[in-house]
């Protein structure tokens, strides 16, 4: 089983790498055929990621989301499927390029931390685990899409404002399309993030007796949640759209990343992973 799982992981890496390479070729050449191929490869990568996670599940006997490596792979998986589900509804020109590169980076990061299997501490053995951690990481998947959209928005906006129409101008989608994308991903991500926090707190009540006990991860999740809450609120009321919206999507994602890694390595707490 271990070999199969390892082979699956290697193929995930390889296929995702090929997918982002194909997307990059499409980005530079703008050949539609290449895009179709790249899209198929990314779908293949998504399926392989699912299989890899399933194989880990069989190996460890619980949802593989507890070690650093597992969490990052799950993050990549959530981003991939968030993008694919999104892509299915409507298309945003050349968005796939940035997202596939981002997924590829996540998977590369996952190779850094140990793939070792870690037994689950009794406190974590509960069906709350897949619900709480899974939902939170799906939220991160959508929020990372908003982040990618924000970056594209800022690049395109800069070209439009500086009046030098270079490489990105023709290749990037319209500002309006990006703004809508950010808005949709934020909304979806925020809903999942809220669910993640609520389930976490219910689980904490069950496991430790209190809903909330100011663990660094909890605190930072709350901070992240507030950042997103404020920007969604402002977007709906006074119209924080466009550049401000893009900047906020990026800032919010920085908070997400800090909650995911910064807290684990710098602050510790009950959420620290065994790895």
């Amino acid at each position: 089983m271990n070999e199969i799982s390892y082979l699956l992981f290697l193929s995930v890496l390889g296929v995702t790498f090929i997918a982002s390479a194909a997307y990059l070729v499409f980005f530079f050449r703008q050949n539609k055929q290449v895009r179709t191929i790249a899209r198929m490869i990314l779908v293949a990568s998504g399926i392989l990621q699912t299989l890899y996670i399933a194989s880990r599940y069989i190996q460890v006997g619980h949802t593989p989301i507890t070690s650093q490596h597992e969490a990052v792979v799950f993050f990549a998986w959530a981003t991939t499927w968030a993008y694919l589900s999104f892509r299915w509804r409507y298309s945003v020109k050349n968005f796939g390029t940035l997202v596939s590169v981002f997924i590829c980076l996540l998977l590369l990061i996952s190779t850094i931390s140990s793939r070792e299997l870690t037994p689950l501490s009794p406190a974590l053995q509960s069906w709350w685990l897949p619900v709480h951690a899974g939902v939170s990481l799906v939220a991160y998947g959508f929020l990372s899409l908003a982040f990618c959209g924000g970056i594209m928005y800022l690049l395109q906006e800069r070209e439009l404002k500086s009046k030098r129409f270079g490489y990105f101008f023709s290749r990037f989608p319209s500002l309006d399309a990006l703004d809508q994308l950010i808005s949709h991903c934020l909304t979806a991500g925020f809903v999942f993030l809220t669910l993640g926090i609520v389930t976490g707190s219910l689980w904490a009540r069950q496991a430790w007796g209190t809903y909330w006990h100011w663990d660094p991860k909890e605190t930072w999740s709350l901070i992240t949640w507030f950042i997103y809450l404020v920007q969604i609120h402002q977007r709906l009321t006074v119209g924080w759209r466009g550049k401000k919206g893009a900047v906020m999507a990026i800032l919010g994602f920085a908070a997400v990343i800090f909650t995911l890694w910064g807290v684990t390595y710098l602050l510790g707490g009950v959420h620290s992973y065994a790895g």
């Binding site: 439009l160 101008f169 989608p173 319209s174 500002l175 309006d176």
Partner: peptide
């Protein structure tokens, strides 16, 4: 062209 880059449609 520019208008379409800003407003989409």
């Amino acid at each position: 062209q520019l208008a379409e880059k800003i407003f989409g449609s």
